[in-house]
């Protein structure tokens, strides 16, 4: 019975995945006249390579730090270390990611692939914001609609609706909402503040772009997780609530002592599912920002697709997907361990 399913899963999931692992150790390109070669871990080095460069301020002959009029110390150019400097072969080809000043020394963090690092950080920010926000909101909605009221099913349907619509369509719609000139959001804020609110190009500025995508993503999938919470809520025996009401528990106490403990397994599920979905952030980026502006919305999967297909760098794309797999797997395991049943 399970035969066909196992075959199909093997064909479309396991085999491609094993391919990806294999390819991540080669220099395979999509179309190339050259034979494929084994390159060891160099793809991983290329993506994840990091180094620390301590920059000492320039000093004059007397050993005093050279300062400009504003009193800021003058540092040598990072480029002088990373461009074919035979004294520092380890920095060769790297770029400055960010730097921190400690005392007079400027510690520069160099990355071999700054864009990928940005993508990693953006993805983590996305996950860290979306997981609690979406999970919490979905729980709130589930608690609200888990009541015996007339027409409550209408609300359930309304909240669930965005889930049914394709994420691509939703992203297109939200592009209009976020539009800088006559977008719905700008118009709304304007009319609420009687014109005082200046128009914002929500998706066009590095400061707001990721936030805008987070808000839209939370809205889109919150209904899905609401339904999961709802099913969890309905497994809690009504007599437990009755017992709590006889003991005189307040609404909050009922939640704390009856509802929340009863939702423990659901919470683990919701958390793991949201985390995995959030790590896969791609469609919204592809439709709304293409990773911009200034790489402020780069994500891991977007990078994988861009390299694998955009730049025809199959081995690079494969490497990113293997890294993503390891990340998601280890985070899921950590979550499982943290939320395990304590005896």
């Amino acid at each position: 019975m399970a035969g066909p399913a196992i075959f199909l899963i093997g064909l479309f999931v396991v085999v491609p995945f094993l391919f990806a692992i294999g390819l991540s150790f080669t220099d395979q390109r999509l179309v190339t006249p050259n034979p494929t070669q084994f390159v060891g871990a160099s793809n991983y080095n290329q993506l994840l390579g990091l180094n620390l460069l301590p920059l000492e301020p320039e000093r004059d002959a007397a050993g005093q730090i050279v300062r400009d009029e504003a009193g800021a110390a003058k540092y040598p150019a990072v480029r002088s270390f990373t461009r074919k400097n035979p004294d520092y072969p380890q920095y060769d080809g790297m770029r400055e990611w960010f730097s921190v000043g400690v005392g007079d020394t400027q510690w520069v963090v160099l990355a071999r692939d700054v864009v990928f690092m940005t993508a990693l950080v953006n993805t983590f920010i996305f996950v860290l914001v979306v997981a609690p926000l979406q999970g919490g909101l979905a729980l709130g909605l589930a608690l609200l609609i888990n009541q015996k009221l007339r027409g409550i099913n209408v609300f359930r349907a309304i909240y669930f609706m965005p889930v049914v619509v394709s994420i691509v369509v939703v992203s297109l719609l939200w592009r209009f909402i976020y539009d800088g000139n006559s977008g719905l959001l700008n118009n709304l804020l304007k009319s609420l503040t009687f014109g005082a609110f200046p128009s914002v190009e929500w998706l066009g500025q590095p400061e707001t772009a990721l936030g805008a995508i987070i808000v839209m993503s939370v809205w889109q999938a919150v209904g899905f997780h609401m339904v999961i919470w709802l099913s969890g809520l309905q497994t809690i025996s009504p007599t437990l609530y009755e017992a709590a009401s006889i003991e005189g528990a307040s609404k909050w106490q009922v939640f704390r002592y009856v509802t929340w403990p009863g939702l423990r397994n659901t919470a683990v599920l919701v958390l793991v599912v949201i985390t995995m979905q959030a790590f896969g952030l791609f469609s919204q980026i592809d439709v709304m920002t293409k990773g911009g502006p200034l790489d402020s919305t780069q994500t891991i999967v977007f990078q994988a697709v861009q390299r694998g297909y955009g730049k025809q760098d199959i081995s690079g794309g494969s490497t990113i997907s293997v890294i993503l797999f390891v990340l998601v797997l280890s985070i899921s395991l950590i979550q499982r361990w943290l939320t395990r049943e304590k005896r």
């Binding site: 007599t239 017992a243 006889i246 009856v258 009863g262 423990r264």
Partner: peptide, 19 residues
């Protein structure tokens, strides 16, 4: 409300909190 009625109730399904 139940809590102000000076009653206590024991249910067929026990209704004790599993956690």
């Amino acid at each position: 409300p139940p809590k102000d009625r000076r009653i206590a109730m024991v249910f067929q399904s026990y209704a004790i909190f599993p956690h």
